[in-house]
Nucleic acid binder design. Sequence first.
DNA 1: TGTTCATTTGAACATTTTTACATCTGTTCA
DNA 2: TGAACAGATGTAAAAATGTTCAAATGAACA
Lengths: 123, 123
Amino acid sequence: MTNGQPDMSAKENDYLAVHEDVVKRVLERQPADEYLYDLAELFKVFGDSTRIRILYALFESELCVGDLAGILALSPSAVSHQLKILKDAKLVRFRREGKIIFYSLDDDHVRTILSMGMEHVEE
Amino acid sequence: MTNGQPDMSAKENDYLAVHEDVVKRVLERQPADEYLYDLAELFKVFGDSTRIRILYALFESELCVGDLAGILALSPSAVSHQLKILKDAKLVRFRREGKIIFYSLDDDHVRTILSMGMEHVEE
DNA sequence: TGTTCATTTGAACATTTTTACATCTGTTCA
DNA sequence: TGAACAGATGTAAAAATGTTCAAATGAACA
């Protein structure tokens, strides 16, 4: 029988962390959970092919919902749902002209993020 | 009554595309669907807070599954499942040392993509 | 060889997410 | 005002995803 460390006392979880010192050090440097959560939420928005196609279409020009529906071969309703998600994530913005609402990419982060993704996929 | 374009003849879908010329022009410039699909798949991998936390932890140092489980307060099994997804997406790589397998970030794209996301979230 | 330990794998379950359909809002224009 | 139209929204059904639990793999070492 090993004589050392006999009691497992209270631990944060039941699983054995192999290198406690490493775990502790890394934990101290982690950003706030809320922050990481927001980041995941952002990428989740990019993580759908319909939304990616919308963003790529808007890459070319400002477009209204009807046009996007035509380009994606989807119902205006489906497009509108996805646009709402993109709007909430501040990835697109819009302006109204009479009955028609034109959507466009919100800022250059969007372009940059897409480009980075591209590079990784293309390798 | 407008005299022009009287017949709706055959269209790709049933929904009215408001500006046919614009639709056509944008469509011509869209990347292949398969490509956009891959891109969405990549971002989908980033779009989960557990995986984001794993990536951030690996940002600090190479880690084994047990350590990651400790850091995330998750079971090694759950961590392993997510690592498989990250491996398949070529976002992490690993090396074996005896019984232990150490994971690390695969390339600098990962860091860059995370940084871009950060900037958008922080604004 | 047989045991131990780190990790992986597979199946089941719960949750989230996407799509479709119907309905509603708000603007234009007769 | 009210008909027509662009777009938004709620919700239910369908599809995809994450976590857990149990069992399997595979390397190390007695």
